[in-house]
Design a protein around this nucleic acid. Structure first.
Lengths: 238, 238
DNA sequence: ATAAATATTGTCAAAATGACAACAAAGTGT
DNA sequence: ACACTTTGTTGTCATTTTGACAATATTTAT
């Protein structure tokens, strides 16, 4: 990747937000940049879009190069086109959101270099910031990240929160959609919204919305290892 | 605009959906293409993005060249990147939605060539189609429109319907946000959703959502020309 | 004056929501 | 064994929201 891009034309890139829920916290995968500009900064994984591929295909390739995963949820987030967002030259970036169960992501990460890390998304009065063990906290408004990736992440987190309770994205965080408990699903909601949820009301609303219509149903097995009472397992239909 | 674009690079364009509500029907501005490809087809107004302008700036320029309007609502819809969407070469299109009160749009159109027309958005079992007086109906799925503009329009209408009742976009259709009646606002909702709305429940919800919080308030004047009882006028605050 | 048109308010049962209490089934520790 | 903790699950109940519709108000048209 050259330090200076071909002048006189607009370059088109994709950047991806890989979301997961890890230990009850919404988290995001960042890559440490090996090359200038922003060398050694944390950044969203990205890639230029080839002449013979759609943006979705570019995202799939980028993903395939990074992690051995398949069948992932993918959604176009927003296209960022500010003039000076890339010091190398004129570049626009199409941001895509990807959701992976932590189990899958973790397994995939172990086979890789340590240039990738999963950061927890934290909320406080000042806004969002990202943390990981042994790393300094990353502010999203203060140029801690490469390019305009702080803005992209803020946009993504807001979108995710906005749509979690009227779409099916929450299920994409589950490691096994054929056997999950409502508590696990509740953990996803609590992590994404960063707020506690009343179990009773939560299961009422989920069952009303999904069980009635047959989108989820109880499985025969109901066992589970752990401390407390075993949970009834559900599966996502179709 | 050349028939063949410079090869070896991706071209970036913006296409705009100018929505309005006209005579109680959601409507959309289309332009008849003067040049190939798709010569004489109806299409969304579009423009290539210059090297020194953001996508928003390109949209504003396109709009300024077409219509003498200012201070319009603008929202990025989606970026379309399919490989063969433009026969001239590799082009991606960033679609933007724009909302204009019919009064403004109509005034602006009268000063223009007849290459621009406002089409009504109609819903039936087969999906969406567009109509205008003296024009054949335009299907959105059957290649009646240039490029992939049918798909873009479907995406836009769906998005607009999806967000009308939890955002403020409905107000953007009003010709005068300093003096409008709740009936006028209701007409906007009915047009966008293409379904009748109960007046009583409608005003209860609008007033609960906006009057309580001070976003709208009654104006002193309450007169109105017309047949029936004059409506109380509201104004959007700030 | 009457009718038609439009705007506005009121009512009321049904449904959804939020805040809790209570109960159930497992493991842990003494 | 027993009490205790942890996790899952169901129940309750007052409040709020919603949907359907009736009733009233104020204007123009005939």
């Amino acid at each position: 990747m050259p330090e200076r891009l071909e002048p006189g034309r607009i370059h088109v890139a994709v950047d991806i937000l890989i979301f997961t829920v890890r230990e009850g916290r919404l988290s995001l995968l960042l890559a440490r940049r090996k090359n200038p500009p922003f060398r050694n900064y944390w950044a969203l994984p990205g890639r230029f879009v080839g002449l013979e591929e759609s943006a979705e295909a570019a995202v799939r390739k980028l993903l395939a190069e990074m992690l051995p995963v398949r069948d992932v949820y993918m959604e176009q987030l927003y296209t960022f086109t500010a003039l000076n967002r890339d010091p190398r030259g004129r570049t626009i970036s199409m941001a895509y959101m990807i959701i992976l169960p932590w189990q899958k992501l973790q397994a995939a990460l172990e086979e890789e270099d340590v240039q990738l890390r999963c950061f927890g998304v934290n909320h406080d009065a000042g806004g969002l910031y990202l943390t990981a063990e042994g790393e300094e906290a990353i502010t999203l408004t203060a140029g801690d990240l490469a390019f305009d990736h702080g803005e992209i992440i803020r946009t993504g987190v807001t979108r995710l929160q906005g749509k979690i309770d009227y779409t099916d994205v929450s299920f994409r965080f589950l490691s096994d959609t054929a056997a999950f408990s409502l508590s696990e699903l509740q953990t996803v909601f609590e992590a994404v919204l960063d707020t506690p949820v009343d179990s009773s009301n939560f299961r009422r609303s989920i069952r009303g919305r999904y069980e009635q219509s047959g989108r989820i149903e109880q499985t025969v097995q109901a066992k589970q290892q752990g401390r407390g009472r075993p949970a009834v397992l559900y599966r996502l239909v179709k």
